[in-house]
Structure formats: C-alpha cells, structure tokens
Computed example of a mutant assay.
Amino acid sequence: MSTRPAAGRCLVDLSAQDRLRSRAPERAPMLRVLCCPPAGAAAGYWRFLVREDVHVLGAQYPGRESRFREPAAPTVEALAAEAAAAVAAAPWARAAITPGASADVPLVVLGHSMGASVAAELASRLEHREGIRVALLALSAKTAPGTAEVASTGAGTGAGSDEDLREGLDPLAPGADAAMVRWLRRLGGTPEAVLEHPELLALQLPALRADLRVSMAYDRFPAPVGAPLLLLRGTEDVTVDPGGLEAWRPVSTGPVQRREYPGGHHPLADHGDRLLEDLLACAASGRSG
C-alpha cells in the first residue's frame, strides 16, 4: 500500500479555492505559477498572487494545514520529488509536455527563501524526469548552496550564523522559543499576532524548525534546466547579497534576469502585481527565445 501523500495534499490549487469563495467563473489563464513557500509557511503564503487570469498553485509541505500530522520531509529533494509527482498527475500537465498544444500555458516555478531551493529541484525534476517544460525558474531571497554566508543572517544562507537562530533550532534548549521569536521578528514576514500568541507559536514552530534544518543541509545544485532564470531580491534584505543570489547561475542554461523590490526579506506580497508582470515578461521572452 502506497504511503505517498495524495496529490491534493501536497499541491494546493489556490486559484480554484478562490473561485469557490468568490463564485467567479473559470477563465483561461495567461500564466501558471507553481509556488514553493519559505520555511514554516504553508501553500497559502502565495495567495496574494491569485488573479482571474493567473493559475496559482502552492506546494504544501508536510507539517502544516492539511498535512499537519505528517512528519517533516528529510530533505529538499524529498519535498521537490513529491511536488513533482503531484504536478505530473495534474490534468493541465499534459499540455506542458506537448509543444504547440492549444491549451499550453507558460509554467513558472517560483520559490522564496527556503522555497527557492525546493523550486530549483522541482523545476529540474519536472524537466528531466517528468518531461514537463518550464518556461521560467524564479528564485527569491536565497543564497545559493556552497556560497559564503552573509554575516548575522541564516535564513537566506546555508549554515546559519545568527546566534538567535542557532539557539532557537533546538526546541529543548532553554529559551529556544524566545530566541526563535527574536530571529523571526528581525527577519520580518511573521505577523505580530502570531509571535505574541504562545498557542499559535506552538503550532508553527515545529514545522519552521524542521524546514530550517532541511534548508541548511541543502548543499548541491540539481541538473540545470533550459528555462530562463529570474533572480529576485528585496532591496533591504540583509540575509542575501546580490553575489550570493547570483551564484544560483548553474541551475539554468538559459538567460538570467534580475529584479529587486523595495523591502526586506519578504517583499513579494507587497508587490504582487509587479511580480506577476515580471514573471509573465520573463517567461514570454524565454519562450520566444
């Protein structure tokens, strides 16, 4: 008997959920965005991207929402493998395999922070193992594997030099939760209502710690994809410098473009329209090229 999670649990159709709430009719999308969230976050992190003419799907990691009771994934590669299997089983995936199909919609694989590592692995698996063409790989706010750390960070890098982060990773250490809250507050992106609520924190911290360990252990590049590469960064993000982001170059044999958005480590939600414009333009230029 298979122990693999059902596709619906590890790949969430955020656009379909939005239509159910709004009762809006389904429209043919001009872009399909497959999103990998950062450490501790659920697929719904990407809900800000949902538009009537954009199909947004989020990878749902174990340990949160519909997968709350599932054990954490052991590696980034395991997260990417289950997401790739779910994508391959999706009805729309056949169009991505057939060049020139009338229903063909550009597929963007997008990952933020830890999700950038998952996205790189996922795009590689889709292209090399599933035969699914990716129009664009977009990586945000994450230093590439093997790149020297930015001092006093940890979230966007491989090893984690931040003292609060190191103390917070061990849930049995005295003051671990308080250290993790201090680190999250400096990083930004987590609502104060969560940081100040012990019960909510108790639900979120196990998944966050598991994700951070997995992210820090990731030390390889997957087989490169032929899709263009888009590198994204907040202008005030101290967790990853332009050089560390640029070091993702080996994951693609296509052209590289770069975009910066005002803000820190989590700037994308405040610039959703601009992000979609950039994704659509870069995906279109890659397909025409």
Score class of each variant (00 low, 15 high):
Gly158Leu: 04
Glu196Val: 10
Asp177Ser: 10
Ala103Met: 07
Asp53Glu: 14
Pro171Ala: 12
Val108Gly: 06
Leu107Ile: 10
Leu14His: 01
Ala141Met: 06
Ala83Gly: 01
Ala227Ile: 09
Leu11Met: 11
Ile132Phe: 07
Leu31Pro: 01
Leu107Val: 12
Gly188Lys: 00
Gly160Ser: 03
Cys10Ser: 06
His197Cys: 14
Ala116Glu: 05
Tyr61Gln: 11
Cys10Met: 07
Ala88Glu: 12
Ser285Thr: 14
Arg213Glu: 07
Ala151Asp: 13
Ser102Ile: 07
Met180Arg: 03
Leu245Cys: 09
Ala284Thr: 15
Leu276Ser: 01
Ser124Ile: 11
Glu167Lys: 10
Glu149Thr: 03
Ala120Leu: 11
Ala223Asn: 08
Gly189Glu: 02
Gln204Met: 15
Leu139Ser: 03
Pro145Cys: 10
Asp237Lys: 01
Ile97Gly: 13
Ala78Cys: 08
Ala176Trp: 02
Arg186Ile: 01
Leu212Thr: 05
Gln257Tyr: 07
Val251Pro: 04
Arg19Glu: 01
Ala42Arg: 10
Pro267Ala: 10
Pro191Lys: 02
Ser215Thr: 08
Val194Ile: 15
Arg51Asp: 00
Ala193Gly: 01
Gly272Phe: 05
Arg19Trp: 08
Leu14Arg: 01
Ala101Val: 00
Asp18Ile: 00
Ala148Lys: 14
Ala80Glu: 05
Val12Arg: 15
Ser124Phe: 08
Gly156Val: 03
Arg47Tyr: 08
Leu136Trp: 02
Pro74Tyr: 04
Val150Leu: 09
Val87Gly: 10
Ala119Lys: 06
Cys36Leu: 12
Ser15Leu: 09
Leu110Ser: 07
Arg166Lys: 07
Gly254Asp: 08
Ala151Pro: 14
Ala173Phe: 00
Gly286Ala: 12
Ala39Cys: 10
Phe48Glu: 06
Pro206Gly: 03
Ala6Met: 12
Leu139Gln: 01
Ala96Ser: 15
Glu277Met: 10
Tyr61Ala: 15
Glu127Asp: 13
Tyr261His: 09
Gly175His: 00
Leu110Tyr: 10
Leu20Trp: 12
Ala283Ile: 07
Met180Lys: 02
Thr143Cys: 11
Cys36Tyr: 05
Arg274Met: 10
Phe221Leu: 14
Cys10Glu: 03
Ala28Leu: 14
Tyr61Trp: 13
Glu236His: 12
